[in-house]
Amino acid sequence: MALKRMDNVGIVVEDLGRAIDFFRELGLELEGRAAVEGEWAGRITGLGDQHVEIAMMRTPDGHSRLELSRFLAPDVVADHRNAPVNALGYLRVMFAVDDLGDTLERLHTHGAELVGEVVDYKDVYRLCYIRGPEGILIGLAQELS
């Protein structure tokens, strides 16, 4: 049996509303919000009885999703939000945008901070990393044509 698709990337946050607002400003659409709780969910995650609020965000083309989760129980046990870009494990989510300057300006009002510099790569892409809500590392790429 072959792989069919990647359904989503999940990110755990403390402030679900703030994260939703940030990713809406980036251009994702809120597909829905729900509570996931109970013993059945804990059997999947290995966390036992859990209570999580989730929001599913969809890219405008409908092909990719970002699942934002806020754990109410059990308590969060680790924090990787300020890990440098060369840390093992989760690195970043990369989004293609049509105007990097405009995107940075809009996201700045939602607390986004540039990690390094905006760089043009071989006159093909304009690229940068930003820290979004709660320090989430996000890559932005504008195709130069």
Score class of each variant (00 low, 15 high):
V9Q: 06
D123H: 09
V93Y: 01
R92K: 12
G42M: 06
E53V: 11
R18Q: 12
Q142T: 09
E25H: 08
M57L: 15
V12K: 07
V97C: 03
F95D: 02
L47K: 12
L137I: 00
Q50Y: 03
E53R: 15
G111I: 08
P74A: 14
D49P: 09
P133T: 14
I44M: 06
A83I: 05
V118C: 04
E113H: 00
E37W: 00
A35K: 13
L66I: 00
A35L: 15
F71W: 12
D7K: 12
D120R: 14
G17L: 10
D61A: 00
Y121H: 12
H108I: 06
A2P: 13
E29L: 13
V13Q: 10
G116C: 07
V77E: 06
K122N: 10
Y121M: 13
M1D: 15
G17W: 10
W40R: 00
N86V: 09
W40D: 04
G135R: 10
D61R: 01
R106P: 05
L66E: 00
G46R: 07
V9A: 10
L91H: 13
M94L: 13
L88R: 14
A41R: 06
V85H: 10
L91N: 14
G48I: 03
V124S: 07
V77N: 00
A55Y: 11
V13D: 11
L137A: 08
V93I: 01
G10F: 06
E67S: 02
G132Q: 03
I136A: 12
L88E: 09
A78V: 13
G101L: 09
M1C: 12
N86T: 13
H80T: 05
T103G: 04
D75C: 04
H63G: 10
V76G: 06
D49H: 11
E14Q: 15
L114M: 04
D102A: 08
I54D: 05
G27T: 01
G27A: 04
N82A: 10
D120V: 13
M57R: 05
A19M: 15
L68D: 05
V36S: 08
I11N: 01
A87R: 07
G38C: 05
M56E: 04
L137Y: 03
